[in-house]
Amino acid sequence: MNVNSTATANNKIKMCARSVNVFYGTMQALRDITLDIPDRTITAIIGPSGCGKSTFLRLFNRMNDLIINARVEGDIKLDDMAIYAGSVDVVDLRRRVGMVFQKPNPFPMSIFDNVAYGPQRQGVQKNELPDIVENSLKQAALWDEVKDKLHQSGLSLSGGQQQRLCIARALAVEPEVILMDEPCSALDPIATLKIEDLMRELVKDYTIIIVTHNMQQAARVSDVSAFFWMEPDRAGVLVEYGPTPQMFSRPKDKRTEGYITGRFG
C-alpha cells in the first residue's frame, strides 16, 4: 500500500498561511510562514520541540486567541475566508475546523454524551442525536467496541479508545478540517497504528493537519510534510515543505536531512 500516492498537486488549497508572524508579548514564536494545505490530504508538521509546531496548528482554529498577549500578523484562509478578519465568528470557524488534542481528553460524561456534546450545543434536535453518535463512532472505528456501553463513562475506555472517542466527538460537528496535535504521543504502538489507519480512512472526506514528533509516523501517514526549525532567537521558521516521499528521500535542506535521519533534534 502506498499511502502517499494521493495526487497532492491536483488538490485544491483548503487552508493557507501567508507571511504569518506570531508573537507572545515581545517574543516572536513564528516568523514569516507561508504554506498551503491541500484539500483532502494529510499534512504533517514536523520539527524539534519548541519550534512553534503547535502554535502554528492552533492558528487554524484560532485556539491561540485564548492566550493572553498572543498576536498574529499575516493572513490565514479557510477556502476564501480570511479567518482573522474582524467579521469572522470564531465559534463558526471552530465548527468547520475541528481539533484533536495531544492527551486524550474525553469529557467526564458518558460515551454518548461526549459525541453528542458538539451537536447539542448547536441546537440539534434530541431525536437526531442517536444517528449522529452512531455515525461518528463508526467513522472513528470505535462503534463496534462501545455500541453496548454507550452510557458508560468516556473515561472508562483505554487511552487509544479515548483518543478515537475524541476523534468521533470532533467528527460529530461535521468539520471540514481536523487539526491533530500529536494525537498519538500518549498511546502505545498498537493504538497508534489504529489511529493512523483511521486517519488514512478519514482523509477521503476531510483535510487533516497533524503535528507529530514521530518521523516514522509522518512518513507513514502524511501526503505532505512541512519541516519547522527554531532559529537562534527562538522564532520558528518553515525550512522545507513538499510531498512527504520526496522530503524523506531527498531533503533539500541540510537541517531537514539531519533531523529526519535522526542526527539531531
Binding site: 482554529n61 485556539m63 485564548l66 465559534v91 463558526d92 470557524l93 471552530r94 465548527r95 475541528g98 481539533m99 488534542f101 492527551k103 481528553n105 469529557f107 467526564p108 456534546y117 458538539g118 450545543r121 448547536q122 475524541c166 466527538r169 470532533a170 460537528v173
Partner: peptide, 27 residues
C-alpha cells in the same frame, strides 16, 4: 477544572457561556 475540558469544548465550536454552563459549572 482541568483546562483540557474547556479547550475541548471551545474547539468543538461551543461558545464561552456554553462551555461554562455545560463543563465548568458541573465540574
Amino acid at each position: 477544572v482541568p483546562r483540557e475540558y474547556g479547550e475541548a469544548s471551545l474547539a468543538l465550536g461551543s461558545t464561552k457561556w456554553q462551555t461554562i454552563r455545560h463543563i465548568v459549572l458541573p465540574q
